[in-house]
Nucleic acid binder design. Structure first.
Lengths: 348, 348
DNA sequence: CTGAAAGCGCTAACAT
DNA sequence: ATGTTAGCGCTTTCAG
């Protein structure tokens, strides 16, 4: 007794027949153009729709309308905890505006990114949000080439003309607060664990660090800056570098929470006390930051907001009501927790 | 000098005109039905396609073909690090098979899940993969109702007939190894930090734990089982419960890595040494597990594989070549790291 | 070996 | 106030 027959979903024609009206009438009901319609007709159509459990085909609709109410979300790596909330922000707003999301991970692979973008274009997404720092430039170029509106998140480079927007992150504000926090507690030698040098965002953060130091008359020149990976791995080596540096830093600002946590765990492993022997500040405020022990003082990025803003901007571009210039900035702010404290007085 | 004019993408008709052939011929080239075609014709068409930079519209194709080469991925929460790799597994295989992914987060919200499923259905996805333990049952019901093939991941309940498959996780194998590992080191009192009682998967794990204990003649009855949240928060309270228990456990098996790490951090905070004072075993083997200090002994779940299998199964269902019964199981295995050691001999 | 024509499900003029 | 018609871009008989 297997019912192999795939019951085809009802179409607008089925509804029309059932309600004894034309397809146009049904279509009007579907699109709310019901003002100049006889109440009984309206009623009959609604009834038929309900009876048949009819739902319009997004595919067919997209084809006729020329827009798909679909947007692409290009991410470098879902596994990066940083992105999760941004995704939520995007999804929330997109959903509430009736858009669906094609999500795709570039995996930091340009070839893959190209294929994904091609695929998104093939599916006629109305726009794309790009959150893939290393690949953003190429991605945006490809998208522009296909005439697809796009918004880049946290990509400090110049946004050229065209239907491309950008949501920037003002790291400097939070980083400045962080340095102020350390300095006011008495720290004088502060180290910086940066991200890979080729990432624009690493440079931005490092620059902001150096400027914040200089602004307080600290010797930014001799401040130990170690290049890390933005990941937890390898933090042990980085920590060793800091400890070998002279003068030895009493506090370290890491380029992100992951690497800060790497330092934290490495310190644990070496029997170093945080914040007793060393103060630590991260950046991002990922969930984990508040859950480790000691909880991590960090510079919070409003990620949900970031996602929402990007989506809002993209939908603006899609609907042609582009803000000029399509650039927005979100600020960061310090969240003080337990990984920072005044330095011990043995600062040589 | 703004070019406001949205250049419409070339259609199959444009290619046909350019190549001086009919749409049918172009379509044949597009679909590789080129065997019985004059070489010069084929050549001309390829040329025209290249010249125009033509790409077929997935939308139009889906409409005529009746299948969209699109699948939905229903997740409860992207923020859960557990899912990231599964997603990668799904995406990898889907991509290589020419499928695109609609991803959607239920956020553990049934209403939201319903809307998302409706949306997926509206977009005529060919199938859906569900990875949302709490909501799976309802989700599958809704999908079945709309006649959409589905595969559930890690949902231990009965799979009814219909085009629904399941990929199970055999927790018992890894949990048994874990207990064996502890017992062979001399542990006799082992605690279990379980997940919320209403989650089927919590029950599965707890049962496996108790059985593994009993199988070794240990007093499963008096083994302290504390109900946790599967999250890091609240681990402090759980740890306190374990420590207050008599006899006090010398090792704890947590239901997942997150809660194990919660215990780890809580122990740090209380000055307890891991594994000196207490051995700890997690489950999942999330990235973080190998990065914390001490690194976490845990039961590894082959997540990439999980995603791949689910996708493979779904595509099988979609293409009608369903394996009978559509159920697969992946096994788990213990990964020994540094959070486990023999108990101190002061076991009262 | 290739073309003409119908149709997938929907919307939008343009009638009436 | 509602129906008719012509597409949107593609595939697929069916003819030649």
């Amino acid at each position: 007794m297997r019912r192999e027959t795939r019951v085809p979903r009802p179409t607008i024609a089925d509804v029309a027949r059932q309600a004894q009206v034309s397809k146009s009438t049904v279509s009007r009901v579907l699109n709310g153009q019901t003002s100049a319609m006889r109440a009984t007709t309206h009623e009959r159509v609604e009834q038929a729709i309900a009876d048949l459990g009819y739902r319009p085909s997004a595919l067919a609709r997209s084809l006729t309308l020329g827009r798909s109410r679909t947007i692409g979300l290009l991410i470098s790596d879902v596994g990066n905890p940083f992105y999760a909330e941004v995704i939520q922000g995007v999804e929330d707003l997109a959903l509430s505006e009736g858009y669906s999301l094609f999500t795709a991970n570039t995996r930091y692979d340009l070839l893959r990114a190209e294929r994904l973008i091609a695929s998104l274009a093939d599916h006629e997404v109305d726009g794309v949000i790009v959150m893939s720092s290393m690949l953003s430039e190429r991605c945006v170029a490809l998208l522009r080439q296909r005439g697809i509106p796009a918004v880049v998140i946290d990509w400090p480079c110049q946004v050229e003309i065209g239907r491309v927007g950008a949501v920037r992150v003002d790291y400097a504000s939070g980083i400045d607060q962080a340095i102020e926090h350390l300095v006011s507690m008495g720290h004088r030698v502060v180290g910086h664990l940066s991200g890979p040098a080729h990432l624009p965002t690493s440079q931005t953060r490092t620059t902001a660090f150096l400027e914040a130091m200089a602004a307080r008359g600290l010797d930014a020149q001799s401040a130990p800056v170690v290049t890390g990976t933005l990941r937890m791995e390898g933090a042990g080596d980085a920590l060793a570098s800091f400890l070998a540096h002279s003068p030895q830093p009493t506090a370290i600002l890491a380029a992100n929470d992951q690497s800060a946590l790497g330092l934290l765990f490495a310190a644990h492993g070496m029997g170093l006390s945080i914040p007793g022997d060393l103060s630590l500040i991260g950046l991002d405020d990922i969930r984990l930051a508040s859950q480790v022990s000691p909880s991590l003082t960090t510079i919070a990025l409003p990620r949900l907001h970031l996602g929402r803003m990007a989506t809002e901007m993209l939908l603006g571009l899609v609907q042609g009501q582009a803000a000029e210039p399509p650039i927005a900035t979100v600020t960061t702010r310090l969240v003080v927790r337990s990984s920072t404290a005044p330095p011990m007085k043995e600062t040589r």
